[in-house]
Nucleic acid binder design. Structure first.
Lengths: 233, 233
DNA sequence: CGCCAGTTTGACCAAGATCAACGCAAGTGG
DNA sequence: CCACTTGCGTTGATCTTGGTCAAACTGGCG
């Protein structure tokens, strides 16, 4: 589970409960979050820091407070696959009992809250609405994974890049300018492409006036309609 | 959610509760299933029959009693993507509120049980262990979707075919012979390949003596070690 | 027997990977 | 302050995998 609870934006928020963006509609869920807060541990990681590793035992799950986390896996021959990027408000590492099959790493400076599974289960006993909260997050995550499956299985390089940019614009600032915390290589491993193809597709969008790239990390959206058309689906 | 509750095998079972294969460890979960049975409707579909369509409202989820179901989506330009095959004992269509984003179709002759979401929610109130059952199924499903994401993003055609065959051997008979209910075209759309590439990869495995193909639907596993090596991961 | 749908195989093509060079900004050390 | 390095990012030339197009094969069935 690596997806949003809602459209939460905790980027500048030192405590996860100072804002109420978790998509809480039903009463009782806020209680659940207050209780969650009570079992949380705050951790920080610097660039490329390892939050957990493949094959580690699963006894915690996490929520991003600030920064960007990548969920990834390394194949024997060096190929890498990034399953997910997690931003502020996203939770990750809800993996079911056993061992991790992916690792979690800090893309930039990251602060996360860590919740022990055992304590969470106890909270669920007391407050079933928390269970619903977590279940809905899992379902959202599942829908997301299926969307990526479609992207990787049936979309061309330029469609993938367009979809990626739209995803980032929607999940992050939703403003005219987008600052990407991850490298081209991260993007490539997320989209099942090579660095070079990512560059070329971005350059192509730039040539067509759909985006501008003032510097490698920064994308300016100049023609959203064209970008959406490029995804088609 | 389209994955197993466990290693259940209901293929020859007219009622889902005549056998206890749902991976039930904790007591209380059997109760939950008896209760589930009470709210189920039995439906059958013939080849290519539509169980539900994209954009249909979500008010039910399903469990396969017998036959094979494909969960799929059609893009505007005719490209098709199959997210999942579901066999006896697998549940599918647990999609979170709103509209379906995929359709469900019968690959062959299919019998399913249908459970209304509203009735299920009531059961969950009475029997929280059902919630855990459904949550674990969702998590298993999620892990599965991530595995497919890796396959589609970073594996070659022959690796995909090898992984597919191993998946089918494990999920179905686990015997020397495997009968595939789905067409080459279904396999292609599941693996993000074309029919021709599926054929060529299968022929290549046949040439290498890893499998034999007595007829197009039937695969004989001759060298499991070689097949596992072909996936590498 | 001939048709039909699904499968297999072959010849060719193109999207994207690979290999290689170059650009560019941020350190680093003299 | 200025060479020099280092790590990304970008671009170009070439190659490979898998897609496209086309033809042949197969078993079932009217």
């Amino acid at each position: 589970m690596h997806r949003h609870f809602g459209n939460a934006d905790y980027r500048s928020s030192p405590t996860i409960l100072e804002r109420d963006g978790l998509g809480i509609a039903q009463s009782g869920q806020l209680d659940a979050l207050v209780m969650l807060e009570s079992i949380a541990t705050r951790l920080s990681f610097s660039r490329d820091g390892e939050i957990y590793d493949e094959d580690d035992p699963v006894y915690c799950w996490y929520m991003v407070v600030s920064g960007t986390v990548r969920i990834c896996k390394l194949l024997a021959d060096g190929r890498r696959h990034i399953a997910e990027f997690c931003f502020a408000g996203d939770c990750f590492g809800v993996d079911g009992p056993g061992k991790r099959s992916y690792s979690a790493e800090a893309v930039d400076e990251v602060i996360v809250m860590r919740y022990r599974q055992s304590a969470t289960d106890r909270l669920i006993e007391e407050n079933p609405s928390l269970a619903r909260l977590l279940r809905d997050a899992a379902l959202r995550d599942l829908a997301n994974a299926h969307a990526r499956t479609l992207l990787l299985g049936r979309m061309t390089a330029s469609e993938r890049i367009a979809a990626f940019l739209l995803e980032m614009f929607d999940r992050r600032d939703r403003a005219r300018f987008l600052d990407l915390p991850m490298s081209r290589s991260d993007i490539a491993d997320y989209l099942g492409l090579t660095i070079e193809t990512v560059c070329r597709s971005l350059s192509s969008l730039k040539r067509d006036g759909v985006i501008a790239i003032p510097n490698p990390q920064r994308i300016e959206l100049r023609d959203r309609v064209a970008l959406e058309a490029a995804v088609e689906a």
